[in-house]
């Protein structure tokens, strides 16, 4: 987030004149709408907002938002965004990336933008597949994923985007999914966080990896399969009949049954977005035995990179007059006057 003058806009104001070119039914449409719905609520100024992306289906995003936008090169969007933010810290930056762009070719830059804590919202659209190159497996694809490049099934272990972000030093980690009605709330929380805010957004690639998240996104069973985290609230799901507790012996999280409203007796933990230890446990929860943790997992702000750079530049300049002529003549000098035999 940044400190801009509040601007009144509507969803329409954030739609560019460009025809959206994702496949019909792609989860990206829902995310685009969620973002365009959220921006007016944030009173964001289109002229101060910049969407920056890498390469991939998700990275076409900037073309469709009526703001400043930069569609850069594969995996490098965090580096471009860092340069933009350092050059003008007043700009509000949304980084759009995917599981391939952000965790394969761009894993290095993603790590560094998170550890440096450059103020921006980072939306990683995770569809567990390479869409734009026609369906190869990605670093988040589950083992055994059959694709044109892995006809016998993929054999490498998938990366966990939120665990990667936390491990890189992220101060804000959240999860949502494309068609979730709560996605705007997650985006708002990310925007409210000053610093690098990482959001993993599960996104349904209907062409190459259809319904891969159906296990927990299906409406019918979502009460059992999702747990929405809220700071200061007990971690309950299945309409309050189940909760997440700490098993003291194994020092791991477990699912417990809750009788009535008495979650305290059941030992259900209260979510604390400032607890890094809890965040680490939550992002590692295996889906199946546990529901999918969604919402804000970790939110604990720290000094941002660009503010520290501005401060250091200021300190370095303090009390100094930028006299360029004097700079050129710095060090030991001598004067030549007249002829060769007559140095001074």
């Amino acid at each position: 987030m940044n400190d801009m003058t509040p601007i009144e806009t509507t969803l329409k104001d954030w739609e560019s004149d460009q025809e959206v070119r994702w496949c019909p039914g792609c989860g990206d449409y829902a995310i685009l709408k969620a973002v365009q719905r959220t921006l007016p609520q944030l009173k964001a100024d289109p002229a101060k907002t910049v969407f920056i992306s890498g390469i991939g289906c998700s990275s076409r995003f900037p073309y469709y938002v009526e703001s400043y936008g930069f569609h850069t090169i594969h995996g490098r969007a965090p580096a471009f965004a860092t340069g933009v933010k350092l050059a003008n810290p007043e700009l509000d930056i949304w980084l759009v990336t995917g599981d391939g762009d952000g965790l394969s070719i761009g894993g290095n830059h993603l790590m560094h933008v998170l550890r440096r804590n450059v103020d921006m919202q980072i939306m990683l659209f995770n569809n567990e597949i390479y869409g734009l190159t026609k369906g190869q497996y990605s670093p988040t694809s589950r083992e055994g994923t059959h694709t044109p490049s892995t006809p016998q099934g993929s054999i490498d272990h998938p990366a966990n985007p939120c665990a990667f972000a936390l491990g890189s030093g992220a101060r804000f980690v959240a999860r949502g999914y494309d068609v979730s009605k709560d996605l705007p709330d997650v985006l708002k929380a990310a925007h409210a966080h000053k610093g690098a805010a990482f959001i993993e957004i599960f996104q349904n690639c209907i062409v190459y990896n259809k319904d891969v998240f159906e296990d927990f996104t299906a409406k019918k069973t979502s009460a059992e399969t999702q747990i929405w985290l809220e700071d200061g609230k007990p971690m309950l799901f299945a309409k309050g009949t189940k909760g997440i507790a700490l098993d003291q012996e194994s020092f791991a999280l477990k699912v417990v049954d809750v009788e009535g409203d008495d979650w305290q007796t059941a030992g259900v933990l209260v979510h604390n977005v400032k607890s890094r230890a809890l965040a680490h446990m939550l992002v590692e929860l295996p889906f199946g035995p546990f529901p999918m943790p969604l919402g804000v997992i970790y939110d604990n702000p720290a000094v941002t990179f660009e503010s520290a750079v501005v401060e250091q530049n200021k300190q370095a300049s303090e009390g100094k007059t930028p006299d360029f002529a004097a700079l050129l003549a710095r060090g030991q000098t001598w004067t030549v006057s007249g002829t060769a035999q007559d140095p001074v």
Partner: peptide, 8 residues
Amino acid sequence: CAAIGASY
């Protein structure tokens, strides 16, 4: 990339 971003 950061230099290009700054130019932008």
